[in-house]
Structures are given as C-alpha cells and as structure tokens.
Write a protein that binds this DNA or RNA. Structure first.
Lengths: 177, 177, 177, 177
DNA sequence: GATGAATGAGGGTTCATTCAT
DNA sequence: GATGAATGAACCCTCATTCAT
C-alpha cells in the first residue's frame, strides 16, 4: 500500500470516529468523505461498505485494549500484582476508548469473525482476572466471574465514561469484598 | 374517542415498543403498521409524526415512574421509611420500564416540554431522596446528590436492566456508606 | 331530498368555494368538511368524489351566467339594445363569478357533459353577440367573432377580475371600432 | 462542473419545463426524472428540492427577460425610439417565455430573494417605460403607470400568449391614446 | 343519514453504493 | 488511484376514498 493511501485510510478512520462521536450514527458516507477532504469514491476504495468502516473503528479500539490487557496480565503474573489491581487497570483503561460508540454503532457487529474473536478473547481475559480476584479474596464472590465481566462491560461501554468517574468508582467499590 | 380507535392506539404503542426493543430505532413506520396489522395512515392519525409516537412511549413510561416515585416518597414521609429504602424502591421500579430504549430513541426528545418537565421533576425527586439518605447516613456522602442521581440514571437506563439484577445490586452496594 | 340534506349540500359548496378562493386547489376534503362543521363522510354522501364537488361549483356559476346571458340577449332583442351593450353587460357580469377559480381548479373539467354543453352554449351566445356587434359597427371586425369570444374568456377568467377594472376597460376599449 | 453533469442539468430543466407546460404543476419528481431518462437522485443532486427546480426555471426566464428589457431600454435612450415602441417590444418578447407557467407554479415563489428582486426590477423598468410613453403622449394617461404594468403582466402571463396574438393586440390598442 | 377511523397508493426526499470521467 | 455524478430502494408523510360504528 502506498504511503498516501495509508495516510488516507488513517484520515478516514479518524474523521469518521470524530463525526460519530459528535453526532452518532446519523452521519452519511458523503459527510465523512467531505470532512476528510476526500471524495466518496475514495472511502469505498478503502472500505467495501459502511459496515466495514465501522468495524474497522471497532477493531482498532479492541486491538489496543487487548494489547493493554495482555501487557497488564503478563506484568501481574511476573510482578505479583493482585488480580484486583489488574482488573481495575484494564477497566479504567477502557475509558479512553470509544467503546460506547462502538456498541451504539453496531449492536450486531459480531458478524465479523475477527471482531467476535477479539471480544471473546477480551472477555476471557477479564474473566480470568475476575476469577483470580475472587480467589485472592478481593472481589465479592456471590456473582459468577462471567457476570462480573458482563457488568463491567455495561459500566464501561457507556457514553461519557472516564477513568475514575463516579460510576466506575461506585461499581468497583460495590464489587470489593 | 371511539372504543376501536382507543384500542388501536394502544396496539400501536405496544407494537412499536416491542419492535424498538427488539431492533432499536431502525424500525420504519411501515413496519410498525404492518406488525400491528394496520395501515400507515392509521399510525399517522394517532400520532402526527414518528417523533410524536416515540415521545408518547417515553411520556407513558415517565408518567408511571413519576407516579410511583411520588407515592413512595409520600409513604416514606408519613411512614418513617428511610430515604435509602425509598431510593432503592424507585430505582428498582425503573427496571420494568423501557428507559434505556427511551434514551436511545430520542437523545434530544427534551424538545418536548412535558417530557423535559417530567425529567426535571423526576431528577429533583431522586435528588431529594439522595440528599435525605446522605443525611440519615445510609448513602456515601463523597458524591454530591446530583451526581448520585446522574449515576443512577445511567445504571437504570441501560438495555436489559431488571430489578435486582447484578449491576443494580453492585451499584446500590457501592453507594452504601 | 330532505331539507337538512339540501342545507348541508349548499353549505359544502359555499365552504369549498371560499376555501378554494383563499388557498387555491391545495385544500383537502378533510379541511372542507371541518370548515363546514361536517364529517368527511357527509361530503362523500353528497359528492361521489372531489372532482364532482369541483364540477358542481363550476356548474353552479356557469348556470347563473347562462341565465343572465339569456336574459340580457332576450331583452336586447325585444328592447332594441345594441349588441355591444349586451356583450359588455355579460362580460362585466362575469366579474362576480369565480370563473378564474374554476379554470384553475379543473383545466379538464370538460369531461363532464353538462359542463361541456354549458360552455359551448355560453360561447355560442357570446359569439352571436360579437357577430351582431360587428354588424352594427361597434366592434372592430378584423378579429373573427370566435376569437373575440376566446379573448374575452381569457380576460374574464383571471383571478381578481372585477367589473369595470382597468384591464376589462382597456380590453373593451381595444375592441371598439 | 463536469460536462455530462451540466448536460444533465440542462436536460432536467428542459424536461421539467415541457412537462409543466403540458400538465401543470401536477407532475412528480419521479415523472420528470423518468422523462429525462435519469434517476430521481440525479434531480436532487442538481436541485436541493422541488421548489428549487421550479425557481430555477423561473429565474432563467426572468433573467432573459430582464436582459432583453435592459437592451431595449438602452437602445431606446440612445436611438430616439419612442417609449411606446420599447414597451411594445418588451411585452411581445414575453410571449416566448413560460411566464404563465411560472406564475401558476409558484404564486409565492417570491420567497426566493433573487426572484423577488428580478420581479421588482422588471416591473420598475416597465413602469419607467409606461410613464415615458404617457409623457410622450402615446399611452392613455387615465391609468397610473403602475397599474398599466400590472395589467400588462396579466395580459402576458397567460397560458398560450404569443407575440402578436389577438389579446395582446387588443390590449395594446386599448392602451393607445 | 352522519361520523370519523382506517386504508394505501403516491409524493418528496435521503443516502449507501456503483461507475463513468 | 481519486473523484463526484448517477442510481434507486427505502423512508416519512399526505390525502382521496372506503367502511365500521
């Protein structure tokens, strides 16, 4: 891929993300193109259809999150950090990502196999951390680890979520044993 | 209003609510009509436009909630029930209502003056309860009452919320002093 | 036909005429009904469809005009009034009638046989008067009588036409020998 | 603008004008598109809405008329042509333009500022010519110039008006002193 | 006979997507 | 490879007309 093509692709993703964040799903391909200073044709050269663009945004965010999650978990294992801390770190990291947006844009994005896999892997990772935290006695154990994950998903995939905001704090406090 | 007309109006609201719950806002008037076994024209006889239908669903839910909230508050005052209990009752009552749907359907529905008033009144009522609970020492007081209300809104206006579900439990626990 | 039915029919025609005059053809049957204080159903009891109502208004005006024209012509024959005067009388009489409206509402109303006949008869009558006026030397004779009639039609079937207004005056002057 | 796009725009205007002339305002965008061998979308790419298309047709005709009127007036001033002749030239020039159509399509088109300005300017130009003709003694002076213009408007904005047709002749004769 | 609720074809408009330039 | 013009299915809504109450 030529350098300018890659730059255009980046530009499109960034522009689309910004517009989606501002105005929700009600943004046309034409608008995205114009805001990026490109023609619609160029959008369609990079993404076969709208869905693909949305999924690309999602993939991008989830890949970053997965990378972060893996790093944190690895550090925890070697460095003796309690699972509870790792869980908290991952949860708070989500705040900077447009997860709410992603959920809102494509409730059924899971048709994309890579996205589905990423989601599964992420949830598995979080579930391991949750189980670990319950075993170390820092996380209440009257809720199965799978549901803890589901609940954290909701907490974190909400518009306006920020690291350390009140809802996150309350939920983490409510999850403490 | 004739009996059959009233029945149809009910039918429309119920059908629309069901479809919105299933598939989000992406449901056309035509589909709602077909699902209700009516013609589009009938929808438009009952609701001047799509927006009006959505707002009617919202108004309906919020009015019920307001009524419940007022009853609970009144009982609390006469019957010596702690604010904390009243707050919990109202919050759990929300579960049966399509509040998430309402938020999703019309982020800006507040253009409707009655809807706006209801929202303001509801939040004011919840804020009074939150403040009372802080005063009686049952609610953590490191979060201003207004924000407690905001946070409860988020917790409760989420797809799939049910009374007593894990997220609600965790949040209420996290709010306990 | 019962007295109240006849009254309703009159009421509908009058109301429709008024609304059409105010706002042109863009008036729905519903509006006409409401303005008349009736239900749409009642309109359709009296007139099988919209077209029929429009035609009824047209027939009403043209019948009056025909009656007037015949009276004037008869008087002219017995009373020795020049054809020119009769022509002028009829032309000016048109001013009070919603002829422009009629033309505007239904350019093709002539499908109705009675309307077509009336129009033919009216034109024939006017043509006789025009020919007479040319013979008596009061009307310019470089325009065939049939065209004089066509031209008077245009002059008279125009929104805002009033007896003695400037355009009518100018046209009559322009027709004088 | 690309050559094919400009051609299509022309095509749309011409087609629409033709259909409007044949069947009045009751022509749908779909029909215009089909008659032009295009999709509706193309119409909407060139004109934001139906109103804009109608106004474009109107603007086109009025601009041509204004240009002609200015030329005629300028020539008259330098070349010593009586105002009466200039007036007649402009009036007869109107015949080739779809002015009747324009009036019929958009009685209230004057919302468009350029259209409003053109109409004002045209009327002002005609009024100057009328006043001049009264001063030179060729136009009857018992009708104020403004009303002469109004009356000429009616004469000229009528379906089927042609240069030198009988009604125009009669009116011009009726206006001679 | 009167009423107004129900119907659905049709009109204006948008927008994801394709394709000629 | 980029552009933006063209396409048409689908949406929201209106209104002439029918029919149950």
């Amino acid at each position: 891929m030529r350098a300018d093509a890659r730059r255009n692709r980046e530009l499109i993703v960034t522009t689309a993300l910004g517009l989606f964040a501002e105005r929700g799903a009600a943004v046309s391909m034409e608008e995205i193109a114009r805001a990026a200073g490109l023609g619609v044709g160029t959008l369609y050269r990079h993404f076969p259809d709208r869905q693909a663009l949305v999924e690309d945004i999602a993939l991008d965010a989830l890949r970053r999150l997965m990378t972060f999650g893996e790093t944190v978990t690895a550090e925890g294992m070697t460095g003796d950090r309690p699972c509870w801390q790792s869980l908290r770190l991952v949860v708070e990291h989500c705040a900077g990502l447009p997860l709410a947006l992603i959920k809102a844009l494509s409730p059924e994005t899971t048709a994309n196999p890579e996205l589905a896999r990423l989601e599964r892997d992420l949830n598995a990772l979080l579930e391991r951390l949750a189980r670990g935290a319950q075993e170390e006695g820092t996380l209440r154990d009257d809720i199965p680890p799978g549901e803890v994950v589901g609940l954290l998903n909701v907490a974190v995939c909400r518009p306006g979520a920020r690291a350390g905001d009140h809802l996150t704090t309350v939920i983490l406090d409510g999850l403490r044993r």
